[in-house]
Design a protein around this nucleic acid. Structure first.
Lengths: 215, 215
DNA sequence: CTCGAGAATGGAACGGCGTTCCAGATGTGT
DNA sequence: ACACATCTGGAACGCCGTTCCATTCTCGAG
């Protein structure tokens, strides 16, 4: 043991995240990983059970850091917003995290988010019975965005300006059948100009406003 | 043309849905499809561009039927709930729809849902400027559930009782570190006994309550 | 009625994937 | 120094989506 170039789960996860960030989810294969680590794919399996475990470890890494960053924000409303924004920013920086969160919602990262949000609901004055539903609603909303954002990243030709992309989609929306899609046509201009992060936060605030009516 | 056993996109989609419903997303391959249709995989490509298009066609089929079923429900709040529940029930019956919705949120089925919800917001008294965000929040929430439900279906050994499964997860939640997961431990019993559909609807109502504060 | 062109078919072949297998290298305790 | 467990790396397996192409089928023009 203890060769200087030794393989380890940590090193594998580290390189896997580099590949994911640099080239997207499709580029992470055990062969690519082996090449980057100058080894064969078989060696990797000594440290990692399978691809699912590897992706879970990568995701856990990111989300654990996010939750640590939120720390002990005092005000419960601010803390919930901080958790949500932390997750949003993590997905923005690493779109593959979005895929993973919505693909394995029973895994530890989602549980951490659930705890981070649910734990502040009592302080918000939410009655005990309603807390489970309230926390689920917030987490569901976050996971919905996670999947959507990851899908967008999958679609975007690497490096495409997001504004150009939104403009193209907005144009397609505006060209829809007015009889079948009046609402979509109406909001097409807002799609072109909207800010994802702001809209995400507006949704969180909407749910928080709904939660306040439970008191 | 017009042989009695002729292949067609409709027939392919129909059989694909049978496979998806009977054996899950993993079982849908062009080879399996070819076997069921008594043809080779090459013939299928004459009618369908690729697997993505095939899955999109299957999903579109399901969601179009859902939206038609909702029809012209008069009261806007009831209509929004009907759309949401229709989507929920469709995913419950065909979990692969959940995967597909959250994997391709820019595609037509999600747009139909978006229109079906957004179109009623004006009648609900939501100010014009807030409608885009409100509709997005509801759709995001629905897509979050979609992904989660599909993930659950992927995990469940075919035919496992859902209650047994929930009991097992609840037990795992109850066994977590009390210092790190106080909230999750607290709600574990509620997870065991909760009804997915009710909880989903409670989330919709929570967001609708939040939307009402916008008036 | 014939027959050629386009539509449609089906099965072989390609490249790539996750995963398994195993012969060998490497470092450690005795 | 030697046996042994740990660890490595590359070949091989069985799938997958997709492409390719020789063949069959259908129908309208001559």
């Amino acid at each position: 043991m203890a060769r200087p170039d030794a393989l380890s789960k940590e090193r594998i996860v580290e390189v896997a995240m580099e590949i994911l960030d640099a080239a997207g989810e499709g580029a992470l294969t055990f062969r690519a990983l082996g090449a980057r680590l100058a080894t064969g794919s078989g060696a990797i399996y000594w440290h990692v059970a399978d691809k699912d475990e590897l992706l879970a470890a990568c995701t856990s890494d990111v989300i654990t850091r996010v939750m640590a960053g939120v720390g002990a924000t005092a005000a419960p409303r601010a803390a919930i917003r901080a958790v949500a924004l932390g997750v949003f920013d993590a997905i923005d920086a690493h779109p593959w995290v979005g895929t993973q969160l919505s693909r394995e919602p029973w895994a530890s990262p989602v549980l951490q988010i659930f705890e981070g949000i649910g734990g502040r609901l009592q302080a918000l004055g939410v009655p005990r019975r309603a807390r489970f539903n309230a926390a689920s609603a917030l987490v569901n909303y976050i996971l919905g965005l996670a999947g959507q954002y990851a899908a967008g990243a999958r679609l975007l030709p690497r490096g495409t300006r997001r504004t150009a992309f939104l403009g193209a989609v907005a144009a397609r929306w505006a060209a829809l059948d007015p009889a079948a899609y009046p609402f979509v046509r109406q909001v097409a201009p807002q799609l072109r100009d909207h800010d994802d992060r702001e809209q995400f936060l507006a949704g969180i605030d909407l749910i928080l406003a709904g939660i306040r009516t439970l008191r």
